[in-house]
Amino acid sequence: MTHIINILIEISCLTASLFFLRNDITKFSCITTVYLVIVCATEIIGLFYVKTFHQSNAWIYNIFIIFEATYISYGLYLALKFLTSKAIIICSFPLIIFCSTYILEIFNHGYLRFQTLAIAIESVLFVFISLIYFYLLIEQKKPINLKIHPQFWWVAGVLFYYFGSTIYNLFIHFLYKDFPKSYAVLIYVMLFLNLLLYSIWIYSFICNSRQRKLLLSLY
């Protein structure tokens, strides 16, 4: 049931992106829509794979996290680009760390085991970069209009999701082995975090639409 709700949340976000970003021709908006298609496809294929073949679908998610890490790093780079000249260095750093951990895990545990370490490290680095973004935002003298600032909300979603999922990343192994009953609560936590992430992203798409309307009205 949780999987179905999760897929529905993601499809809602995809629909919102198709609706609100339909006239936005910027590269990031197109990539966002493609990324959300990949998210939905991964969830549906993953669920279908488990139900049909009754085997672990970890390898599907192992492929997906490559897209996830790349997309989030790129999004954070675009947000930071306007605040610092070192954005490319800051944002390529987690990607390099993630790739190194990913390859190391593949060598050590194979492709069928879920890459929890790579994800945990990636999460910490994304939280760190999001905090840098907010710090630089506070530092700059010019105020921003939060109602029409999509990047702010996009990064806020990233911060909530990856900071919130720290508990999941820390406890998943321990709970899976020792407290199988309590493990279910982590699934609900992740469901809630997904809901939070995609809701904030939908709001960021609305802000994007508002921003474009405002710009058009100026002409």
Partner: peptide, 23 residues
């Protein structure tokens, strides 16, 4: 198990309150 669930929920709430306060 119940204690573990409470700990996880509380920890998640705290971890979500931190970014909320920041925003």
């Amino acid at each position: 198990s119940t204690e573990v669930i409470i700990i996880i929920v509380l920890a998640t709430i705290i971890f979500l309150l931190a970014p909320l306060s920041l925003l």
